[in-house]
Amino acid sequence: MINLQDMRDTARNMLAKNEVRGVIGYRRSTNGMLAEPVVITKPEQADELIWDPTCFHNLSLYLVEDRKFLAHTRAKADLPIAIIAKGCDARSTVVLMQENYFERKDVYIIGVSCEGTGVLDERKLVKKGIRATNSAFDGDDFVFTTEQGEQRIPAREVMADRCLECRECFPKEHNIVLGEDKTGRQLDAPFTALKRFEELDPAARWEFWDHQFERCIRCFACRSVCPMCYCDECIVDSTSFPVTGQTTADEKANRVKWIERSATRAENMTYHMTRVLHLAGRCIDCNECERVCPVNIPLRLLNNKMEREAREQFGYEPGASIGGPSLTASFLDTDPGKFIR
């Protein structure tokens, strides 16, 4: 079990000793029982930090935001920034470093082990008809506070799918770590949900995605929440082309419009297909994209498909090590297919 006091003390001490600029963590939101991301910069804010089953956000997104902010304001950071990172969050931090988005010394990773319980899937809880005002980890259970009193539920019943299939709930890359290493305590085989889906015949799968993409409203929450979607310029919206005083009229005029703004099925499909391809070998299955989708498009199936292809074809594991090769920028002599030689 993670002792919340340890987390708070760690953050407080580091801020007090001026070892980090800030700590990216979780605090209680004003929206019911949920946690929300926060960046604390003063030691006295350390007591705001929390750790409970609603800490599902992948905070490495805020490392990207921090980088962008520094670049935009042309500020120089003398100190690293600290981040509370679960196993999956640490892996995405590794991918970002692999891609040189920032350096290892820029980040202080306060690892938190999920110890095999993972985090909550709010929708599963809603389906059980439970309206809770608080949640807590307790061994293999989640404990919820409801109007009817305390309700204890085995974590695996309401745990996020990705956590059920998680192979690495322990943040291997860390400066310090809280909680025990319970790697190997995976509850479902990897790609269980994907396998189930692939049992459908191609026509049924097509119909399925047709239906899913039909209702995408292109709010871009999936893209905005993804730490890997850090591009300044994204092909899906012609307008987010980063224009500066130096951008020439020609550059603006000749910009290719790949995707229309209309949220029609074909355009939506192009958007999601493009995104998933750009995530191949980079997505570490934090599944934030699916969680934040207001219309419940099961984006994890797409990401998982890419992940499994990379694993089966190339033995590739995203976010394994900072110095390791990236999927699309490296090749092996043993790679299947001859086109590369």
């Binding site: 960046v39 709010c219 871009f220 929450a221 893209r223 307008t239 229309e260």
Partner: peptide, 25 residues
């Protein structure tokens, strides 16, 4: 706004947000 990811969920789901874009397709 520190945590805001700049997506459109809040406004697209709002019963009164009316802002729009006009484009030639």
């Amino acid at each position: 706004a520190r945590a805001c990811i700049g997506c459109g969920a809040c406004t697209f789901l709002c019963p009164t947000c009316h802002c729009f874009d006009i484009n030639d397709e």
